[in-house]
Design a binder for these strands. Structure first.
Length: 221
DNA sequence: CGTCGGATAATCT
DNA sequence: GATTATCCGACGA
């Protein structure tokens, strides 16, 4: 499913307008058999949508401030999903750019306008959390039916893909930022595409052992 | 260009 | 209490 999604269009229609992206980078997560999947340890409140019917959006909140969106890919009862990591904005570019202004740049001094240079078009949806920001995807869209043409958040084949074009070369490699199954090559992207995110291995944090002396622990004896 | 630390909170153990 | 499917800005080369 994952490489098949490359080149597909994800679009979100809101009161502000329409923003659409052509997918350029995705990652596959194989549910309960995949140590890197949120479903590896079974069904929970967060991953429940992954166990539902395919074609729906599994949106999760991470790092205290970001959302990422997946497409559920296996029949009901079986958890599996494809993370949408990046795309090229093909509609609603100015709206997407407005949504991508970092909150701490929206200071009163600058009148709500970032003093930083304009975000390059290639960076608008370059990364899973950026993609969600550009498309205004959040926990409200968790469970949304992406295949219903009525849905405001929908996934469709590209207009230029009717003849099964797929002229772009697809590259394969390990997934970004995962600790478990770090060598499993289930990341797929369009080779050479500038909207594909930069690969970064998971940050091996120094798990500093708790220093009991610093936390006022007193050992007597 | 590359590397690094901080932000920030739901979720799970 | 630890971990996290991330991003941004600062800093140095």
């Amino acid at each position: 499913m994952a490489p098949a999604l490359l080149g597909c269009i994800l679009e979100h229609e809101t009161a502000e307008g329409l923003v659409a992206v052509e997918l350029t980078e995705v990652e596959a997560y194989a549910g309960e058999i995949d140590p890197a999947s949120h479903a590896y340890r079974g069904k929970t409140g967060r991953n429940a949508v992954m166990y539902g019917p395919p074609g729906h959006a599994y949106v999760y909140f991470t790092y205290g401030m970001y959302f990422c969106v997946n497409v559920v890919c296996m029949p009901e009862g079986s958890a599996s999903a494809v993370l949408l990591r990046a795309g090229r904005v093909i509609a609603g570019e100015s709206l997407a750019r407005d949504r991508r202004i970092p909150r701490r740049s929206q200071t009163a001094a600058s009148g709500g306008t970032s003093i930083r240079s304009v975000i390059p078009a290639r960076d608008l949806a370059r990364g899973p959390a950026r993609l969600c920001q550009a498309l205004a995807i959040n926990r409200i869209q968790n469970g949304a039916d992406l295949c219903d043409p009525i849905s405001h958040l929908r996934l469709r084949r590209s207009d230029s893909d009717v003849g099964g074009d797929s002229s772009a070369e697809i590259a394969v490699g390990p997934r970004v930022g995962v600790t478990a199954a770090a060598d499993t090559a289930w990341r797929f992207w369009r080779a050479g595409d500038p909207t594909v995110s930069v690969y970064r291995p998971h940050k091996a944090r120094a798990t500093r052992p708790t220093n009991h002396a610093e936390t006022n622990q007193v050992w007597v004896g």
